[in-house]
Design a protein around this nucleic acid. Structure first.
Length: 236
DNA sequence: GCGACAG
DNA sequence: ATCTTGTCGC
C-alpha cells in the first residue's frame, strides 16, 4: 500500500489526527486472511531518560502450529512524536516498518502489543500497522485505553467478557492465566472479533502473553541492550 | 472544568 | 515503555 509520507510521519498532531481518520476508514473487521503458516509478533522497547528518544523495534516470526521463532529483525529509530495516548502508532509504526522490511519471509498474521480497533477513533497501533502493511493483525493490549469489561470476568484461564465502550463491544477482555491481569484483545485489520480472540488463545503457551508478542518483547529488549555494547566480555 | 489515558 | 532482588504465593 502506497501512502502519503505525512500519514506515516505526521509533522504535527493535527496532521496525525487527520491521517488517523483516513487510515481508520480503511480498517477491515472481517476475516480476510489466507492460510496461516507464519505468525508475527511485534513490540517496541525504550531506554529510560533517553535524550535521543530512540525507539527499538522488533519483529519476530514464528511457525504455526509449532510456535517456534524462525526469524526476526529489528530496527532503531529516533521517535518523531512523544508518547500520547491515542497516538501510539505514529511513534512506533515507523520503526516497525523498518524492521519489517528486513524480513525475508513475511508473516500471514501479526499480533501487536497494543490495541486494534479498541481505540477512540478506531485506529489503535495494531490496526494502524495492519492497514499500512495491509496484513491481517490483532491487537493484544495489557490494559484498557477506552471502554471497560462488561460484567465480571471469571478467574479461570479462557474466561472472557466483552470490552464495552459507548454501548459497543470493541473487543474482548481475556484472562490467559490464573491470578494474572487480563488481556484486551481487539481486531487489528482483516480479522474478525471472534477470530482475534481465537488466535490469541491458540498462541498461548502458559504465559500471560501469547507467544508472538512475548517473543517480540524479549527481542526488542535484546535489540536495545545490544545497542551501545562496545565489546562482548570473554572468559579470562 | 475534571479525570482518564495502549506503550 | 523504563528502573530492579528478593520474596511471597500457587
Amino acid at each position: 500500500m502506497d501512502l502519503p509520507p505525512d500519514w506515516i510521519d505526521p509533522p504535527d498532531l493535527a496532521t496525525a489526527r487527520a491521517a488517523q481518520m483516513a487510515l481508520a476508514a480503511r480498517v477491515v473487521t472481517e476475516d480476510a486472511l489466507g492460510p496461516v503458516r507464519l505468525i508475527g509478533g511485534v513490540d517496541i522497547s525504550n531506554t529510560r531518560f533517553d535524550p535521543e528518544n530512540l525507539v527499538f523495534a522488533a519483529v519476530v516470526v514464528l511457525n504455526w502450529p509449532g510456535l517456534e521463532v524462525v526469524a526476526s529483525a529489528s530496527a532503531v529509530r529516533r521517535a518523531t512524536m512523544p508518547y500520547i495516548p491515542g497516538f501510539l502508532g505514529f511513534r512506533e509504526v515507523p520503526a516497525l516498518l523498518e524492521a519489517w522490511a528486513k524480513l525475508g519471509e513475511r508473516p500471514d498474521l501479526v499480533l501487536v502489543d497494543g490495541h486494534g480497533v479498541a481505540h477512540p477513533r478506531g485506529l489503535g497501533i495494531a490496526s494502524h500497522l495492519g492497514v499500512v502493511l495491509d496484513v491481517p493483525s490483532i491487537g493484544v493490549a495489557k490494559s484498557p485505553l477506552v471502554g471497560r469489561p462488561e460484567g465480571e470476568l471469571g478467574a479461570e484461564p479462557g474466561a472472557a467478557v466483552p470490552l464495552a465502550w459507548k454501548g459497543r463491544a470493541l473487543g474482548t477482555v481475556l484472562r490467559t492465566r490464573c491470578r494474572s491481569n487480563p488481556l484486551y484483545i481487539s481486531p487489528g485489520h482483516r480479522v474478525s472479533p471472534t477470530a482475534a480472540v481465537e488466535w490469541v488463545q491458540r498462541c498461548g503457551t502458559g504465559y500471560r502473553l501469547p507467544e508472538p508478542t512475548r517473543q517480540a518483547h524479549l527481542a526488542a529488549n535484546v535489540a536495545r541492550r545490544a545497542h551501545g555494547v562496545v565489546k562482548p566480555e570473554g572468559p579470562e
